[in-house]
Design a protein around this nucleic acid. Sequence first.
DNA 1: CGGCGACTTGAATACTATCAACGTCGGTGG
DNA 2: CCACCGACGTTGATAGTATTCAAGTCGCCG
Lengths: 298, 298
Amino acid sequence: MSSSSSIDASDLSAINQHASFPVLSNEAGWRCQGNLWSNLRDVCDLLKIPSPSCSSGEDALFQHVRYKAGQRIHTIGQVFENLYIVNSGFLKAVLIDEYGNEQVLSFPMKGDLLGIDGIYTQRHASEAVALSDCDIILVPYKTFSALGRTYAELEQAMFSVMSRELVREQMMISMLSTLSAEAKVARFLTNLGERFSQLGYSGKVFNLRMTRHEIGSYLGLTLETVSRTLSAFNELGLITVDQRQIGIIDPLSLKTLRRLSPAKPRSKVTKTMSETVSALVGKNLLPQWHNDVAPALN
Amino acid sequence: MSSSSSIDASDLSAINQHASFPVLSNEAGWRCQGNLWSNLRDVCDLLKIPSPSCSSGEDALFQHVRYKAGQRIHTIGQVFENLYIVNSGFLKAVLIDEYGNEQVLSFPMKGDLLGIDGIYTQRHASEAVALSDCDIILVPYKTFSALGRTYAELEQAMFSVMSRELVREQMMISMLSTLSAEAKVARFLTNLGERFSQLGYSGKVFNLRMTRHEIGSYLGLTLETVSRTLSAFNELGLITVDQRQIGIIDPLSLKTLRRLSPAKPRSKVTKTMSETVSALVGKNLLPQWHNDVAPALN
DNA sequence: CGGCGACTTGAATACTATCAACGTCGGTGG
DNA sequence: CCACCGACGTTGATAGTATTCAAGTCGCCG
């Protein structure tokens, strides 16, 4: 099935059984044809962690695997053997709850690490699905552990990455419990834009790779609410929406968009404001202080 | 201030500066008076991870610090130097969001590990506050790292613990976005009960150490909703409530309590159930399928 | 005793979910 | 080629849940 230079996901079972421990090789030839293999340095660069200084770069080679949109990288309950690093493409990480509903946890893209959740029980707690064609680097956990014993910095970096994930999830928890639907969607868009920017794509105009339903699951909203909110932002001139094409027009307003003041509602005078702003405040789409400090505007 | 055998939190600054790297000592004397010091084995036991088999148990000693209710173990932005392990007492871990509101992330108790979130940026991302008097074991991260280099199993265990935390937070995310207020509170109570059980306390009758406001923050609800829900459970005979004294009467119903079916109601057979259950169904407190298969009731 | 923080309870409101109808796009097969 | 279909998306009407605002109670501490 794997016709030429590209390892296909359908070959993965064979790979897992026979090549799950890529052996050292001084032949650089393995890396010549396309992106079939990466060395430790490549992997560290991708993860944005410092690569071990004294590494020859040839300690180990890591295999790339291609997945087509819709394919699963790992599934819930599957025995944990590998970590996965996204080299290209877009995916979703989902949890299936006790009633069979899927909960989207994240939308990994280039440079993101998958599979950490399997370390604890030695089985994956979540599943990862390709939303577009993907190129994934397969990092056998045993290999990685062994390298960690050799290079202390690598081990340290791994702790750091896991700590970062932890903090990211904490932010997610905070956002889920405190923000309004509008604020959630607004942040989702700006965050996505920022991530695209960091990858060298446009952070202002981009394509959503996921459905409204998946966005809703990720944000704790229904797909209708997501759709309505996008439409509202569009009407207000904050963004443009054309199916999955998003254009960010007013990033600042999006970023500061907030819930209707969960704290002290200081009922104060509303002053004359620009059309747009008053429209926003009227719809409770801007922070409360736009009301409080109204005199400062205009 | 530290009068006798007990190290007080107010002495902590001095400790951090001068004794942040507890030195090896073959004198067991340090551990004689009370719980002032723990060795690696003690720490591993507390965390429920296997202690390195070839460890002498005297590689390092870890200092205990006592905190009084209300004191902070670490604060946001504080330089990350130590991990903390709860030996006794109850705390809350909180995040302060951009508007100054506090978001409760967890309620750590005996055996829980604090401070992991500081590894990434080398500064704590959250803060931990004692809800009761606490005895905390202070584990300098550097010491711990060094031990990890010596004992591979220890390092492995650390990854495992972090992975577990990650999965726990994922469950939290899922719960926050999909469950109803009733279901959230019900799970909160049963989870708390289970944790108490595991510590040897009663899982049926216990004291809440936190305010309704803190519970609400943890669950993404307002304090009023928490209060109302507890009252409702009380009226339904699922629990008893007397201020912060909780008595779990019907653990099973609590555990299966669910939102009013967001998904497709899968018609299944229901076994005969008690009065209590039909009361619950009447108030939409039990899964939708309890209604769908109503003929099966009575 | 006074006062404050925590808690409870009620009433009204606001927000989001739910239900339903319809529109669009892309693929497939007659 | 076109008709049909299914998945996805939009929009409206309605319902329901949780928040907000507002008293008022309780317990504790100075």
